[in-house]
Nucleic acid binder design. Structure first.
Lengths: 143, 143
DNA sequence: TGGAATAATGTGTATCTACATAAATCTTGG
DNA sequence: CCAAGATTTATGTAGATACACATTATTCCA
């Protein structure tokens, strides 16, 4: 259990590596989605809202491994863009977040573009993709 | 080659998964480094500067999978904090970025805290860690 | 019922990131 | 030596993220 060295950080730091991977992937998907004017963060948030499984902003934040306060800002942008409707429509415990017609249309337009980026990633990784996918799931589940 | 569905995104999107993992890891490492007043981004940037292998900001940005413009802002903060010295000291091709005494001391103080976070991650992942590490390297190398 | 305890949400502030564009610097052919 | 072209660095603007703190809504029991 010797002291950690700078070389240890460079070689092993999980946060550094995950952030580097996230930056590269974000740029790639953002570029692919550009024709519809969405960023990958916004696209995946629309997808999560569409699913409609979360019963509160806090629950949705947990599902996305996001701070609730961050989610609030991200949701607000999509509301202002007219893609999400945040009507507190009662119905007991439901979150009240849902896609507008424009939001659903945007999602439909974006899906093929997302698919292109995703296919490119899976192609670039080749046979390594299943292992990478499993690793990302493990990271999210266990950290 | 059917059309992608929302469920495909939820299950497979590499960008979403990588961002979720990065968010969780960032929070964990940031919390660990808090006693020395560094964030994991700043800590790893100090480590990269200390290495001294990059010959330009652009080269350093590439090494970190960062946009040059993003790196400029990150460097500026560390300069203002007195941890990095950006003297363009000539010497031909060198970048001119180097740690100040305070920067080196900060790094020394931070290393054991980083180690705690890193150990926690490796412990939580258990035997999955080597595969996860390999996957992150593959993502960075191939995307 | 009236609050106290709890949960849910929003704001202030700061950092991280990136694209587009501008400015400065370096390199080379004439 | 100088101007055209290329490389490098900085700025404007905008979105993503998080912590601390403030606010609002809900629940539940004495």
């Amino acid at each position: 259990m010797a002291t950690a060295t700078e070389a240890d950080v460079r070689e092993n730091c999980a946060a550094l590596r995950a952030r580097m991977a996230a930056r590269k992937l974000t740029r790639l998907y953002d570029k692919a989605l550009r024709p519809v004017g969405l960023k990958i963060t916004q696209f995946t948030l629309l997808i999560a809202v569409e699913e409609g499984r979360a019963t509160s902003l806090s629950a949705l934040a947990d599902m996305l491994a996001l701070e609730r306060s961050s989610l609030v800002r991200n949701v607000k942008l999509l509301e202002e863009a007219g893609l999400i409707d945040a009507a507190p429509t009662g119905e007991g415990r439901s979150l009240g977040l849902k896609l507008t017609k424009a939001g659903r249309r945007k999602l439909t337009d974006a899906l093929p573009l997302w698919k292109e980026a995703q296919d490119a990633v899976e192609r670039d990784l080749g046979p390594a993709w299943p292992g990478v996918k499993r690793s990302l799931h493990q990271l999210i589940a266990r950290i």
